[in-house]
Design a protein around this nucleic acid. Sequence first.
DNA 1: GCGTTGAGTTGGATCGATCAAGGGGGTGTC
DNA 2: GACACCCCCTTGATCGATCCAACTCAACGC
Lengths: 347, 347
Amino acid sequence: MARSDHRSGSQLPATPTTLADVAERAGVSRQTVSNAVNNPDLLRPDTLERVRQTIAELGYSPNRAARNLRTRTSSLIGLRFTPAQEGTANATMDRFVHSLVEASDEAGYHVLLFPADDEDPVGGYDNLLRSTAVDAFVVTDTYLGNPQATWLSQQRAPFVAFGRPWDDDVARHVWVDVDGAAGTRLATQHLIDRGHTRIAWIGWRKDSPIGEDRRAGWLSTMHANGLPTTGLASRVEDVVHSGAEAAAVLLDESEPTAFVCASDTLAMGVLHTLWIRQLAPGRDIAVVGFDDSQVAQVFPVGLTSVRQPLEDVAVEIVRTLRALLAHQPVEARGVLLEPSLVIRESS
Amino acid sequence: MARSDHRSGSQLPATPTTLADVAERAGVSRQTVSNAVNNPDLLRPDTLERVRQTIAELGYSPNRAARNLRTRTSSLIGLRFTPAQEGTANATMDRFVHSLVEASDEAGYHVLLFPADDEDPVGGYDNLLRSTAVDAFVVTDTYLGNPQATWLSQQRAPFVAFGRPWDDDVARHVWVDVDGAAGTRLATQHLIDRGHTRIAWIGWRKDSPIGEDRRAGWLSTMHANGLPTTGLASRVEDVVHSGAEAAAVLLDESEPTAFVCASDTLAMGVLHTLWIRQLAPGRDIAVVGFDDSQVAQVFPVGLTSVRQPLEDVAVEIVRTLRALLAHQPVEARGVLLEPSLVIRESS
DNA sequence: GCGTTGAGTTGGATCGATCAAGGGGGTGTC
DNA sequence: GACACCCCCTTGATCGATCCAACTCAACGC
C-alpha cells in the first residue's frame, strides 16, 4: 500500500513523493523510473512518456540524500567564503561567487559555502571531505605559502584553484587564473596611446607574486615603448592612505602624468592626493585601477580599471571540475584568461 | 572482515571510515558509536572515552548523505544569491552572506547557494524543496509583490526572511529586519546636532516601502525638531546620476546645507554635484549615505553612512531558524534591529 | 526468592535511491 | 524446432547512518 497523501491541491505532501510512488502509479518498477530520470534511452518511447507524465503529475523529484548515499556523490562544490575587506575596494568575491553559482547550476551543481577559520586553515575542508559532503572544492586564495592547495593535493581531494600555484615546485594542481600582467599591459598601453610618457606604477609589496605579476605588465610595456621607469615605481601596503602617500612622493620627485595601480584601493589613494592638490583626474593626471570595483564604477570621476573576466573564470573552473570528477584527463594543467580595460573619465 | 585501508600515513583511505569500522575496532555495536556521537550522555563514561578514542584514531566523520537520508534533514540552509548590482554602491549581500555563513556554521549548518532565475522566481526554491536538499531557506528580497515569501508559506517550507512583509495582510511569515527609519533618524539628528537646519532628503520612488521607511525617519526627526521639510525632499531612481540631478535641483531651489540619502549610491550622486560646483563635502555641504559600502569607506572624503548590523541580523536569523526547525514556538514573529551611524568627513 | 526497575547496550529494520544480476518475450539463424 | 541473442523491464541487495524495540545485568523492594 503506497502513501496516499495526494489530498488538497497545491500543498506539499507531508511525506514527499518517492520513486516507489511514481513506479506504482505508472505501473512499472522502481528501477524503470530511475532509468527514466537518469538513462532515458534505455526505455521504450511509450514507457518513457508514461513515466514522465506520472513524474510531472506527482511533482516527483529524486531525494538528494538517498541518491547521494548510493552514488557517493553530492553534486555540491565547496567554497570557502572570504568577504571583501572593509576599507578597501577589493570586491572580487561577490561577482565571482555569483558567476560560480550560475556556472555550477548549469552543470547540475550547487555551491556550498563554509567559513574561513584563521586558526585552522584546512579545518573546513577536512570536515567536508571526511563526511563526503562535497564532491570538490574551489580554492580562491592561492597566495604564496597558503597550505590549502598543497593539503588538498595530498588528500587527493578534487579541486580547482582560482589562481596560479606561485611556488611552482610544490603543488602542481589544476588552476584557472587571470593574466594580471596582460591587464596592466592594456592599462599602460592605453595611457601611452593617450600621449603619456611618464607613467608611474603603484603596486603591492614585493612578497606578493600577484602584485609582481601585475607590475611586470607595466614594466614590459614601458620598456617596449622605450619609456623610462626609474623612480617611477612604488611598492606599498594595499590600503588607501598608502596609495595616497606613494602618489604624493612620486608627484614630487618624478613628475609622472599618469598612474597605473595594482588595485582600485590604491587608485583611490592616488585620487585622494590629486583632490588635495587640486589636480583634476583625467585632465591633469590620468589614473588606472585594477578590478573594476563598485568604487571605480560610481566614483564621480569614473575610474578607468582593469576588469577580470570572472564569469569566464567560473565557467572554466566548472568545466575543469567536471572533467576532473569524470576522471577524464584534464587537457591543460592551467588556464590563463585575458582581462579587459574599462575606460572611464580618469584616463 | 572490516576494510583495512589504514596504510601509509596521512592519505585518505580509498573508502572512508564508517561507523561500523569504528564499532568493530572499539568492540561495541554500531548504535553505541552513533550514541557516542549524538547522545553522549547515554553511554557510560569509560565506554564513551574508548569510542571517542577510536573515532579520533580512525579519523571518522559521519557520512552526511546517510545521516541526511535517515534523519530527513540536511543541515543545509538555502540562499538565493543575488550579486551587487554593477554601477551602484549597494553591497549588502557580500557582508550578509559572510555573516550568515559564520552564524550558520556555529549552529552546525552550511549555506547552500542557488542562482536567481528571473523567469521562474520560485523555481530554485521548488527544486531544492522537493528534493529535500535543504532544511530551510533564508529569503532576502522581500520587496512588495515578491512571490517568494508567499509561495514558501503556502508550501509550508521553513524559512526566515531578511526583510519585513510589507504587504502585511498576506504572508505573515517570520522575519528579521533592520529599522531603516531609525537609521535615517540617527543620520538626521546627527546633522541637526552639527547645526544644520535645512536638511534635504533624496530617496527612492514611492513604490519602495523600504525607501518610504527610511524617508519617514528623516521626516519625523525634522518635525520633532521643528524644522522645515517642504521642498526639501526628492524621490528618484537608485542610480548615481539621478542622485546628482536631484541634488542640483534641490541646491538651486531650496538651498539645503545637508543631504540625507536612502543609499550610498545616491550619496555618490550628491558628491558628484558638489564636486562639479566646487563645494567641499563636509565643509560647505554635509552628506550622509546608507549602507556603509566600500564606496563610503574608501572615498577620498570619507562618506558618513548608516551601517546595518548584518552580523546581528545573521545571528538572529539563524537563531529563529533553529527554533523553527525544532518546532519550538517562535517568540516573536519579527525582530527589528537598530542600525548605527558611521561618521566620516562628509558630515 | 522473584518480580520490578532502569541504565547501558544490542540487532534488525529502515530511509530512498542506484547497482548488479536476472528474467520474459520477441526476432533471427541454422 | 532449438538455440542464441537483444531489448526492455524487474527483483533483490546495497550505500551508511539512525530509529525502534528488545535484551542483559545489577540493584532494589517486599
